[in-house]
Each structure stands twice: as C-alpha cells, then as structure tokens.
C-alpha cells in the first residue's frame, strides 16, 4: 500500500523531476534515472522514463540530440529549452504550494492548529 502510494506521488511529479535534473546542463536517460535514484526517489525504470522524455520533447520543454559514441551505442542527450525552464519554475511553485497545504492539513490538529 505504501509503495503504491509513493508510486502515485512520483507519477504526478516525474516530469518535473526529470526537468529538474537538466537545470545544470544536458544529460541522458540512464544518467537522469541514476540521479533520481541517488536523490532518494527510488529506481525509475527505462519503461517509465523514456516515454516521459519523449512527451517533454514533444511539448517543447526539452531538446534532444543524438550523438554517436566512439565506442558502443550512441546516446540521446537532453537539455532544457527556455520554455522548459519557465515551465519547471512555475510548476515547482505550484507543487510547493500544494505540498505546504497537504503538510498543514496532515499536522496533528489539522489546518487550524
């Protein structure tokens, strides 16, 4: 039950979390998944991550560039677009407001405490 709930929470903010991993520069799928795991968000499988990256690209929030590698298969690198950066800032504010409201409501005594 707890894992299900955590998974639902993550689903609601995964696009923002992915965008947040690109604020310091470009990155690629596996590196993004690894960074999210290291941030304590659990293992994000490729089956979940890549459709999210595709949607972000279709929405113009990230740009992708495929680069061949000298050794082994090439990779697609993603970077934030200006629209993506604005979107991330606005949606992060919304999330923080929502988080504060939930946090207040869950405190002993509820929102009036």
């Amino acid at each position: 039950m707890a894992a299900d709930r955590r998974s639902s929470w993550l689903k609601g903010v995964l696009d923002l979390l992915v965008l947040s991993r690109l604020t310091d520069g470009e990155s690629y799928g596996y590196e993004i998944a690894k960074a999210l795991a290291e941030a304590g968000l659990g293992e994000i499988k490729g089956g979940t991550l890549y459709p999210v990256l595709n949607r972000l690209e279709e929405a113009g929030l990230v740009e992708a560039e495929f680069r061949a590698a000298e050794r082994g298969p090439g990779r697609r690198y993603y970077r934030l677009t200006p629209t993506g950066r604005e979107h991330l800032a606005a949606e992060s504010r919304s999330w923080r407001e929502f988080h504060r409201a939930v946090d207040t409501a869950l405190r002993p005594g509820g929102p009036t405490a």
């Binding site: 596996y30 490729g46 279709e58």
Partner: peptide, 30 residues
C-alpha cells in the same frame, strides 16, 4: 541505439527495464 546504451549501463534485460516490447513501443512512439 539510445535504449541499447541504457541497457549497457544498467546491466538489465530489455523486458525487465522497459516492460513488454509492444506496450513500451506504444507508449514511446505515440
């Protein structure tokens, strides 16, 4: 190629990492 690169780093099997091929392709390719 990008997905193969992912597997090379994660060390996982494709089905384990991405789920059933048909469903993954459906989610991936619109």
């Amino acid at each position: 190629e990008d997905l193969r690169a992912h597997l090379a780093e994660s060390g996982t099997a494709p089905e384990e990492e991405f789920g059933p091929a048909a469903r993954f392709a459906a989610r991936l390719g619109g």
